[in-house]
Write a protein that binds this DNA or RNA. Structure first.
Lengths: 341, 341
DNA sequence: CTGAAAGCGCTTACAG
DNA sequence: CTGAAAGCGCTTACAG
């Protein structure tokens, strides 16, 4: 097709040089016209765009990444994909980023700081244009890696007001306090808190529960059931069996995540323990299926899709050097009262 | 640090040239020694590797992608991330690929051929070293895009014996036939087949059920309950309510996916319909929670992790030009009989 | 507002 | 088995 290449490493793809030639301008003008960097004569821009259309030119991300400081990929770091919570987050962020012309590099850390660091190093090699990470809990090395990279970064799930830190999330502690208060309002007194995984956000929920319970003089260490194993429906059932056998009996169980609570409700059915009469059961996150349980599960709805979209939008502005409203967005939460409490 | 750069676009990173200088060989020798391409004098290889260690050299994927035909990223195409099935697949594939030195580019197609095509175009721009796609059902354009790209491709979930096509999967039809026969052996006669989403693999399961039912002279169109809406626990409940009201009554319902079956079991509890006495309920895929249901769900266990790992391994061999045993691997399935049938 | 030159950090293709 | 040259397709930094 093109004939101006000497040997034959030509890839056959239409290049910026081809567009420049067709539009009768220099390559650098094409580059600037396309990126909207610096002002370019509107007439030249029009000519360039016409040539781009005609030739079907698509910029080469590898070349762009090599020549400039960053490419068009955005690194996403989440703990797990097996938790619907993060899938919703990822899908929403991906949608927004794709529309803005960015590709997504998804890294799954499995709540492991060492793995997170390794993944991040790999992603950084690709010179991402930006990154979206979950929460604030990570190794000092990873933190330094992020800061030192100069790559714009937005934190999701939690918020902070620290200088130069961007975040979109909600107060896990406030949400947990709201749920605990709800249980108190329902007349419950011996409210157990059951958790798995014990990641930072789970511990923030624990703290919220503790605060409210202490303020009421109802706190007791024996009401805390903390299990570092991964959260699952099965584990919820196991925890329920343990807790329900406790004396003096608890009259409510607040699970740190819906999957545990769902498992508990199923175990209750199996064991013939009446919910909420004998014991109230509450969850967190409003995951798929919680509204279908028997009885339907009372929980905290966390706006994952909204969070993912808002964080991605904030990041796009950062990457483009556009103004970024507030650096910290609290998307809030909603107490969803159903039959289980 | 290094001082041989003229202007100042130096990125500060250690380059292949730095390694070459330190090892006292030419850059191209370093390149070859590192990639294991062509034979290189063992002594030089050792010197190069020592220099790499000492300087902490890490190859730049962008430069590599630009200079060669492909980079170190692998494109992954899945329909959904909100189905645990695909998450298991992705996680397993990602683990194997990461270990082999490849990064993963995950694309979510939402079962939309147009979206799949668009995502693939975007991924191809990054010159992936390989790609992993779900099944065989896609637009002709997408198919041509894959073939024309020359990028090694492995298909997951289904298998085929077509020339030059690589696949790792299982026979959806065989699995479906096995489940239908199991229900027959349990003495069931009016076995309904209920499905959502209606993607290709679901239709293959439908076909398996049809074959067995027809062979027994038990087939009736009114036993088919096909709903194009996305599969979900909630929809399973809705379908169950519809089907259970049918006359003459069905004595078994085979759901094409576990989430539907789980919803059905919850609906049965809600409605007071006894399972399996009044009606048997079966699912497919053995998803999280199915063993916790009341009664526990009989289903088909599909080895997702194994599939993802095997497909990734096959792809790694293809990318490296290494021998690839068989081009089509059938990972099989397992009938898991629990209380619901 | 526009451009010629140099360079990003690798690998290909050709020689020897 | 090893290397000098050229090039992959863009953008930076410097001029004007």
């Amino acid at each position: 097709m093109s004939s101006k290449r000497s040997r034959s490493r030509a890839t056959g793809r239409v290049t910026l040089a081809d567009v420049a030639q067709a539009a009768n301008v220099s390559p650098i003008t094409v580059s600037r016209a396309l990126r909207g960097e610096r002002a370019v004569d509107p007439e030249l821009v029009a000519r360039v765009q016409a040539a781009v259309q005609r030739l079907g030119y698509v910029p080469d991300p590898a070349a762009r990444a090599l020549a400039s400081r960053h490419g068009t990929q955005v690194a996403l770091l989440v703990p797990l994909l097996s938790n619907a919570l993060f899938v919703d987050l990822v899908e929403a962020a991906q949608r927004t980023l794709t529309r803005a012309g960015y590709q997504t590099l998804i890294g799954v850390t499995h709540y492991d700081p060492a793995e997170e660091e390794q993944i991040l190093r790999g992603q950084l090699l690709h010179r991402p244009a930006g990154m979206l990470v979950t929460g604030f809990d990570r190794s000092d090395t990873t933190r330094a890696l992020i800061a030192g990279s100069g790559v714009p970064c937005v934190h999701v799930m939690e918020t902070t007001v620290a200088e130069g830190v961007y975040s979109v999330g909600l107060s896990q502690e406030q949400a947990s306090m709201a749920m605990t208060r709800h249980l108190l309002e329902r007349g419950r007194r011996r409210i157990a808190f059951a958790a798995a995984q014990l990641d930072p956000r789970t511990l923030q929920r624990l703290e919220g529960w503790r605060k409210v319970m202490r303020a009421q003089g109802l706190y007791a260490p024996t009401l805390e059931w903390l299990n570092p194993a991964p959260s699952s429906i099965g584990l919820g059932g196991v925890l329920f069996e343990q807790i329900i056998g406790q004396t003096p009996p608890v009259d409510a169980i607040f699970f740190c995540n819906d999957d545990l609570a769902q498992g508990a409700l199923l175990a209750a059915l199996r064991l013939g323990v009446r919910v909420p009469e004998r014991v109230a059961v509450a969850g967190f996150n409003d995951l798929t299926g919680s509204d279908q349980m028997l009885p339907p599960l009372t929980t905290i709805r966390t706006p994952r899709a909204e969070m993912g979209a808002a964080a991605a939008e904030m990041l796009v502005n950062l990457m483009r050097g556009a103004p970024v409203g507030q650096a910290s967005i609290d998307v809030g939460f909603e107490l969803v009262v159903r039959g289980s409490t």
